[in-house]
């Protein structure tokens, strides 16, 4: 892949979590509001860019047998940085996201990109890949968060979108709404891809 393809593939062709069905936990858990979704997306993007950078830099040093463990150490260090930075600068958001911030460590997207891309590509490409996949993830999370917040609470980023007479569809902000919303979005995306002649049915 050349530089431009790398920079854009995360935005539609490999858009997580729809095209790469990885990292479902944060997608379901923190998207009760659009703001939380965006916050989580930005945190993951940061970790992705720098984990890809360090792993790409170290790709010739890390022995093949212990590579997964080494990747996990790099990722966990970055997550600790994000955790502390969020507590320092965005305290209310970090309270809202709770244990899902430390759980970025086990987000399969990050380990997946490290293994599939950063371990065999030069630094600038790896960072571009991290940025692109991270941005795609942020967009998806904000989208799911917006749908759930608008239908479930009647607001968007905290601003009221519906008149007072709107009865919020409270089911959407709870667990079943998350699964349902993601499943239907995935179905819509599959239908759209089929119409455009791309083949994308996850099994």
């Amino acid at each position: 892949m050349n530089f431009r393809q790398t920079l854009t593939h995360g935005l539609w062709r490999d858009l997580p979590p729809f095209r790469m069905v990885l990292g479902l936990c944060p997608t379901l858990a923190v998207t009760a509001t659009a703001e939380n979704g965006l916050g989580m997306g930005i945190a993951v993007t940061f970790v992705l860019i720098f984990s890809n950078m360090f792993i790409s830099l170290l790709r010739k040093v890390i022995p093949d047998k212990v590579r997964i463990a080494s990747y996990i150490v790099v990722i966990a260090t970055l997550v600790v940085i994000v955790e502390l930075a969020m507590k320092a600068f965005f305290f209310p958001l970090s309270q809202q996201l709770g244990i899902y911030i430390p759980l970025i460590v086990v987000n399969c997207i990050i380990l997946g990109r490290a293994e599939a891309f950063a371990s065999r590509n030069p630094v600038h490409l790896s960072m571009a890949d991290g940025l692109s996949v991270g941005l795609g993830f942020s967009i998806s999370l904000t989208l799911v968060g917006s749908i759930r917040e608008i239908l479930g609470v009647g607001t968007w980023f905290g601003m009221a979108v519906f008149p007072d007479s709107f009865e919020p569809f409270g089911f959407m902000v709870q667990a079943p709404g998350a699964f349902l919303c993601l499943g239907l979005l995935l179905g819509l995306m599959n239908a759209w891809s089929r119409r455009r002649g791309e083949f994308f049915i996850q099994t």
Binding site: P176, F179, G183, L186, N190, I201, Q202
Partner: peptide
């Protein structure tokens, strides 16, 4: 339905179970 096959229908099913 073809578009819902695989993960999509699985997630909807999980939603119903969660309910």
């Amino acid at each position: 339905p073809v578009a819902m096959r695989g993960t999509a229908i699985a997630l909807v099913t999980a939603g119903v179970m969660s309910l």
